[in-house]
């Protein structure tokens, strides 16, 4: 078996006195797609935010594509170049047009020429089906469109890993599907390692290789999606599933 692209070993983190991650061990294979679910406050967002160092872990090791995350800024920036992230609240840059949002990273971080960066950006905008919005500002787009722009922005950096932090939970119900469709399409193209925190169980069934259930800072249960939903083992998992699948 090839070396895992992400490896979390005995990761612990505290917010003040609150122990938010407790001895997390997780190993993600190259190209694997994982859905992480769990009640709010269970540490699932914190865990994936540790992978690109938006949060610092205090004990244990996180190794991304062969590089361990330490305080070394160069290391952190190198890893962030390889890891794309999509946020709950999109976090697009409101003072830049859609196209400028997409080319900012490629031009300044990857040092690509502007024309090339723009061509790549248009390619990904077409992939997320909104090339006609390129000249608009994020504030002029709907939530669903903004989130698709955010996905395209991450893809423009040509990342090896994509992290999704509740990408559909801030969206109006009628826009959830357009974002999920884009994510499913991305998954079906294959090759991309994806970690997705979401409660969209349909998405999990459709594309995930593995579903992880977290509660109170621990990974309680993980399994293939069919098994996970049909046959949950832990009481906490059963309770959680009964609450979200009516």
């Amino acid at each position: 078996m090839a070396a895992p692209i992400i490896e979390l070993q005995q990761v612990n983190k505290w917010y003040g006195e609150f122990h938010v991650l407790k001895n997390i061990n997780l190993s993600v294979a190259r190209g694997e797609r994982i859905v992480i679910c769990g009640p709010s406050g269970s540490g699932k967002s914190t865990m994936i935010r540790c992978i690109n160092r938006l949060e610092e872990h205090q004990r244990g090791h996180i190794i991304v594509d062969g590089t361990e995350l330490t305080n070394d800024l160069k290391n952190i920036e190198a890893i962030r170049r390889e890891v794309g992230m999509v946020f709950q609240h999109f976090n697009l840059f409101p003072h830049l047009t859609v196209l400028e949002n997409l080319t900012l990273g490629p031009i300044w971080v990857l040092k690509k020429p502007k024309a090339e960066a723009e061509a790549t950006a248009m390619k990904y905008l077409e992939r997320v089906r909104i090339p006609e919005q390129a000249k608009k500002y994020p504030g002029q787009l709907s939530g669903g469109q903004q989130q698709r722009v955010a996905i395209a922005r991450s893809l423009c950096m040509n990342p090896k890993i994509m992290l999704f932090d509740e990408p559909t939970s801030a969206l109006d119900p009628e826009m959830v599907k357009e974002v999920l469709d884009v994510m499913i399409q991305l998954a079906e193209e294959g090759g991309m390692t994806m970690l997705c925190v979401t409660h969209e169980m349909g998405f999990a069934k459709a594309v995930a290789h593995r579903v992880i259930f977290m509660d109170r800072g621990e990974i309680v249960e993980q399994n293939k999606p069919d098994e996970f939903f049909a046959n949950p083992q832990n009481e906490r998992t059963k309770l959680f599933l009964s609450q979200i699948l009516h």
Binding site: E77, F90, F93, L104, G105, S154
Partner: peptide
């Protein structure tokens, strides 16, 4: 979120401040 958006793209501190 703006800081995190810039961080997640791998922008350096001065790029993040100056551009975003």
């Amino acid at each position: 979120g703006q800081y995190e958006g810039a961080d997640s793209l791998g922008l350096s501190y001065w790029q993040k401040m100056g551009l975003v």
